[in-house]
Structures are given as C-alpha cells and as structure tokens.
Amino acid sequence: MKDRALLKVENLKTYFPVRKNLVEFILSRKMEYVRAVDDVSFNVGVGDILGVVGESGCGKSTLGRTILRLIEPTAGKIYYEGIDVTSLKKKEMRKLRRKMQMIFQDPHGSLNPRRTVADILRQSVRIHRLADGKAEEDAMIKTSLEEVGLRPAEEFWRRYPILLSGGQRQRVGIGRILILQPKLVVADEPISMLDVSVRMGIVELLAHLREKFGISLIYITHDLATARYICDRIAIMYLGKIVEIAPTEDLLKKPLHPYARALIAAAPVPDPRVKMEELPIIGYVPLIPSDVYTSCRFYPRCPYADKGCRELDPQLVEVEPNHYVACCKTK
C-alpha cells in the first residue's frame, strides 16, 4: 500500500526564521524559528481525499504550500509517484507542477480581474504548452468550463470575474487547474469565503472530480463538518504537528487525542435542541509556541496532562488499523 501512494510526505519540516533586532541578535547569537510544520509524515493514495483540519496558525496552509514547493521545506522529503520533489531543479519542478495544483481560499483575490474567464483558463494552457493552435485551446477551455458547472460555456466566456458570484468564481479557479489534468490538488479552504447556500455545490464538484478523473485531494479546512462530507481520512494538526490521523467516521465517532476531542466538541451544531457540550480544553493557543517545542505541544491546554506530558514529545502511533494518535496518554 505504502509504495502505491501517489504522495508520500516524510518528516517534513518548514521553519520560518523570527526576525530580531540587532541588539537581541548580538546578545543571543542564535536564530529562532517558528516551526510552522514540524516533522509531519503521511501518505495520500491515488484518488484519496485527505482532510487537514486545524485552527488558524496550526500550519495547515504552510503544509499544503510546502507540498507543492511554493514554500521550500526546511527538512524532510516529499515523494510524488516515487519522485523526490524536494530535490528537483526549477525546470523539472515546472514540468511536474502541471500534475500538482492548488485551489485557493479567496476566489475574489486569486483571479486576475482584467482577464476574461476564457483568458484565465487560456493562460494555464499556454504556460504548460498543452494545445496546438487556438482552436484546440478553445475546445479545451470549453470542456473544462462545462465540467466545473459553468454551462453553457459561451455565457461565461467573455465575462470578467467581477461579474461572477463567489461560487462561480471558485468554479473558474477549479476550471483553470482542471484543464491541466492534475493528479494531486491542494484545496486550501476552498469554500470558507462562500455563502452557505453554494458551499455544498463546490464540495460536490470536488467529489465529482475525484470520481471522474481520479484526482487526489488534500483538503485543508478548519471546518470538520464539511470535511466529513468529502474526506476519506482526516488529519488533525496542532502547532505544526499532526496529532491524530484516521478514517473520517472513526475520527469523528471515536476521537482519541484530547485536542481532536475538543475540536469535535466545539464544532457548531445547527440544531437548537442540541445542548452545547463543555469544552475539554483550557485557554488559548500559546502566543509563544517555542515554550512547548520539546514537550507535547498540547499539554498546557490539555485537561488530562501530567508531568510526563511536559517531558515527552509524543510521536504518532497506530492504535487501531489506520488510526494514528500522538499522545502520551493513549496506550
């Protein structure tokens, strides 16, 4: 199974240096880093949808961007179909990019306002030199637009993004990557800026693309509820680490890590008859996370923490088939 994985991430680390002023630098002489992604490993199979769920600042977007090498990793390996992506040269990487694409969060900011819908897609085709001549380009654009639900394509062809609704813009964003026939797509909060009534339409579209084209998806979100509807597996991140990764329903029904439990308890339920649960979590995400880099990241907020948690940095352990947890308390 592991060898047939489309994407294999091993001990990936992305650190960002913390800028200090000169005096501080001279006094300490040591660079400090924010560990946005810290020793993360997982696999994504062909046609798999993996959800990466966590709060803001947990490193989930950095993880997605590092996998596509939009941010250079500090350490660790990323294998795509067995190819080590981290060691590729710029030119080789460019060729591979066609297969590894991204859907952005903000459908308003990620489309060029001065290009028409057709030209936005045309740009993708031209950059990767996929078509011979304009007629073929046009045909590809038409197919792609109709595939993402912008039908009939002629109606959207000459429109500028400003004339589209949020949902339609996000469809354009998906159309311009679909035209490249990617195999792996990182979707970074693709629906969080859309209205509730159109969100599920985009989620269904992503599920459809997986069914029809076998596209693997890394679905980054803070919303467990929508992740439930599309993901095969969910990874929960906290301060740069994956603390639990399991098949979706297993995770939601039987979360093992205290942070996963807190996230699930906090998830909003759209039913006034359901009473709000007590939150099994203490305080806030620490402002200076470096204090917890040598211990369990979660111990200051964990209601079950004891002395051992302060001394040990727990690693992911398979406690049930495919259900991995990083917690000292789980045996």
Binding site: V196, T226, V269, P270
Partner: peptide, 11 residues
Amino acid sequence: KLLIKSYPSIK
C-alpha cells in the same frame, strides 16, 4: 428549508 438542508453537521 434549503438553507437548513445545506448546512453540514458532524453530529
């Protein structure tokens, strides 16, 4: 009706 049906829940 549609608004309520379009809202996902983990419960």
